[in-house]
Design a protein around this nucleic acid. Structure first.
Length: 232
DNA sequence: CCATTAACGACTA
DNA sequence: TAGTCGTTAATGG
């Protein structure tokens, strides 16, 4: 696909002209990686800003006892490896959840680009502050919410981020991410044995639906919101 | 309410 | 065959 087309899909670069995107392209070589590739980790020294030109990426940390804590899921257009990781130590890993096109800009390059195009700095701040707000909201749920509420909150976030609206039934959205119970547990600070009955319960409540046993989840957005507001 | 541990069948590399 | 996944159950905080 046209490299410029890819760049225009990055949220950070929304608002840049075609000519500006063309200039930027010189700094952002395309790199395709297969599903399951670790594109960023504490071991890879290079500190950079990564752009997801196509695909999905999971960010996670390893806890002391070797368990994975998933921090965020990202899709086409998102960026990760923010400025804070340029200076401070980070223990974050990034792994592709499907075949993806990722490129990276290291600090010096990014600073040069920002110098020439200050609007990018503002766009970047917007993205980072939105992210911070999201993390603060998460923190509140993690601290005071039950696992059920944390799962509902997560599903709500996922449907906003990865949910495609059903053509015939607009109130139902299909989750465009394949997540195991293990991963849902990892993201809610829970156990997969806890997640299983909770999901089954949500299906019986009509909040979730499955077409096939192995198929993706469908989410009833309004019922999800209601369940989120109702549960402790 | 939920973590922990154990265990089992099914599926997958 | 070994490892992963979804699931149920017992137990205990």
């Amino acid at each position: 696909m046209d490299p410029i087309k890819y760049l225009s899909r990055i949220d950070l670069f929304r608002g840049l002209s075609g000519e500006e995107l063309r200039q930027l392209n010189a700094f952002t070589p395309m790199h395709t990686c297969k599903k399951g590739t670790v594109v960023a980790s504490p071991h890879l020294e290079r500190k950079a800003l990564y752009l997801i030109k196509a695909g999905k990426v999971r960010l996670y940390k390893l806890t002391e006892d070797g368990k994975e804590l998933t921090l965020d899921l990202l899709r086409t257009g998102h960026i990760f490896g923010d400025m804070t990781s340029f200076r401070t130590e980070t223990r974050m890993f990034a792994v592709t959840m499907e075949d993806s096109v990722i490129c990276s800009i290291d600090r010096e390059q990014f600073q040069t680009i920002i110098g020439e195009k200050p609007g990018l700095a503002l766009a970047y701040i917007d993205i980072v502050t939105a992210r911070l707000k999201e993390v603060e909201e998460w923190l509140e749920y993690m601290a005071y919410g039950s696992v059920r509420k944390r799962l509902l909150f997560l599903l709500n976030k996922l449907s906003a981020k990865f949910g495609a609206g059903g053509e015939d039934e607009p109130e139902w959205g299909r989750l465009q991410v394949e997540l195991t119970h293990q991963e849902l547990a990892s993201m809610t600070g829970s156990m997969r044995e806890t997640i299983t009955p909770l999901l089954n319960r949500l299906v019986s409540e009509g909040v979730l639906r499955k077409e096939a046993a192995r198929g993706p989840y469908w989410i009833h957005r309004e019922r999800l919101r209601a369940a989120l507001a109702a549960s402790k």
